[in-house]
Design a protein around this nucleic acid. Structure first.
Length: 424
RNA sequence: GGAGAGAUGGCUGAGUGGUCGAUAGCGGCGGUCUUGAAAACCGUUGUCCCUUUGCGGGGACCGGGGGUUCGAAUCCCUCUCUCUCCGCCA
């Protein structure tokens, strides 16, 4: 959520920036400014009436102590009128406040100046790429066939137990999962991230804090009996650790990482790209979350991108880093880099990580602030997060790219974690 | 599932109708003392909003919402959450 102040102070700038995201903000911004003016006028009137009533109440206390019955009576009569107008003004105020809030949440985050113009994924900017494409036979198999040939993943069994999109990993397939999780967590720790093991269900307040609620409610599994939501990413519980928190400058840098299972309903995305591991309802992911000083958040973003790059390099996967264009960016992000790995048999790029700076957009909702120094006013911090990494598509690429006549080769960095270097 | 207790400032914990935004202790910050540190002592220490060029002025907030009253942290209603004991259980 953008701050009211930002909109009030630079309405034109907000409108121009949002145009890059293909969002026409003119009407909303103008309404917000109009309502805010009215709200402030109302508050002035209400506050004046309240000040008078407060003074009168104090006076009545004095008069009663002095035993001045007629003075007391007189003062009391004057309060009735004040109370009535306060009641009315408060109603108007609350109404305007709700209207403003409803409009504010409609506005996406403003993109960073470096975000490229563009409408869709086609216009994204490839920042750099690395690794080398695998040389595969013509009859190279897609990962879902490899998974069943080597008895690594059973998709049909998942359907029996739960439904589509809930695969069962078994044998070396399960061990590969565990190895990847441990590898990612160890790497994160070695890079200074504190490991968090968060709850996999969150309450409503947390859902609001990171912006899943109320808009994206349909994307989360809802445990209605207790009104909990299954987390779609560890970002939700980990970032909400800092909800309503005021950090001190010395608390920086905040670097957290967390492994979690992630649950997504993916409503409305059936039909395309859902084969095998490409899109699941439950999957594993290690997430990195950072809270940064506004002055350094873009340096932090670069640092995170470099870190994620080191992971795909260690896994020996061909990859490219893409800076999303305005039209392809998420609602809450100011700048996003996507990581894609090449899936040799499907012959396409698979998104395995998305690293974003949200600036103060999330922090405003979370009321996550920091204090420059003791005695100074708190200000909003910047939040960033990224996948490091999401497992399924990594597994898909590993299986496809490393298939050989003798079996599937495990990248060297992973062998100590797997305990095997080949899936024969 | 049954029974009970509670929710107050960064933390602990007072406060049951009238300068209570709130006693006190701890913590934090500043200072005195000290070669330095500790201890001791003194001072200071919430958030949000409106208004003002500035100094300042005003309003709101004691889990959320509503009510009683001239006046509510304090009384009433309601919701939520937390804790303790019993039962069940990884």
């Amino acid at each position: 959520m953008l701050t009211l102040r930002t909109i009030q102070e630079n309405p034109q700038e907000v409108i121009e920036k949002l145009a890059k995201k293909k969002f026409d903000a003119r009407e909303i911004v103008n309404s917000i400014i109009g309502f805010t003016e009215a709200k402030n006028q109302t508050q002035m009137q209400a506050d004046r009436a309240k000040a008078e009533l407060n003074a009168l109440s104090r006076e009545i206390g004095q008069l009663m102590r002095q035993g001045d019955a007629s003075g007391t009576q007189q003062a009391r009569e004057r309060t009735a009128e004040l109370k009535e107008s306060i009641r009315e003004l408060d109603l108007v105020f609350a109404d305007l406040d709700v209207k403003i809030r409803e409009l504010l949440v409609l506005l996406p985050n403003t993109p960073h100046v470096s975000v490229p113009e563009g409408n869709s994924a086609e216009d994204n900017e490839v920042v750099r790429s690395g690794g080398s494409f695998p040389v595969l036979d013509e009859n190279a198999l897609p990962h879902w066939e490899l998974a069943s040939r080597y008895n690594l993943i059973d998709f049909e069994l998942g359907v029996k137990l739960t439904g589509a999109g809930f695969p069962v990993y078994r044998g070396k397939g399960a061990r590969l999962q565990r190895a990847l999780i441990n590898f990612f967590l160890d790497q994160a720790r070695q890079n200074g991230y504190e490991e968090i093991q968060p709850p996999l269900m969150v309450n409503e307040a947390s859902g609001f804090g990171t912006g899943q609620l109320p808009d994206k409610e349909g994307q989360m599994y809802h445990v209605t009996a207790d009104n909990f939501y299954m987390i779609p990413t560890a970002e939700v519980p980990v970032t909400n650790i800092y909800r309503d928190v005021i950090l001190e400058n010395r608390d920086f840098p905040v670097k957290n990482c967390a492994y979690s299972a992630c649950f997504r309903r993916e409503a409305g995305s059936y039909g395309k790209d859902v084969r095998g591991l490409n899109r699941l309802h439950q999957f594993d992911k290690v997430e990195i979350v950072r809270i940064a000083h506004p002055d350094t958040s873009y340096e932090v973003l670069e640092e995170m991108v470099n870190y994620v790059e080191s992971l795909v390099q260690k896994l020996e996967l061909p990859y490219r880093i893409v800076k999303l264009c305005g039209g392809d960016m998420g609602f809450t992000s100011a700048l996003t880099y996507d990581f894609e790995v090449w899936s040799g048999a499907q012959e396409k790029w698979l998104e395995v990580s998305s690293v974003s700076n949200f600036e103060s957009f999330q922090a405003n909702r979370l009321k996550l602030r920091f204090r420059e120094e003791a005695g100074k006013k708190p200000q909003l911090a910047h939040t960033l997060n990224g996948s490091a990494l999401a497992l399924p598509r990594i597994v898909a690429a590993l299986l496809e790219n490393n298939q050989t006549p003798e079996g599937i080769r495990i990248p060297r960095a992973l062998v100590p974690f797997c305990g095997f270097d080949m899936i024969p």
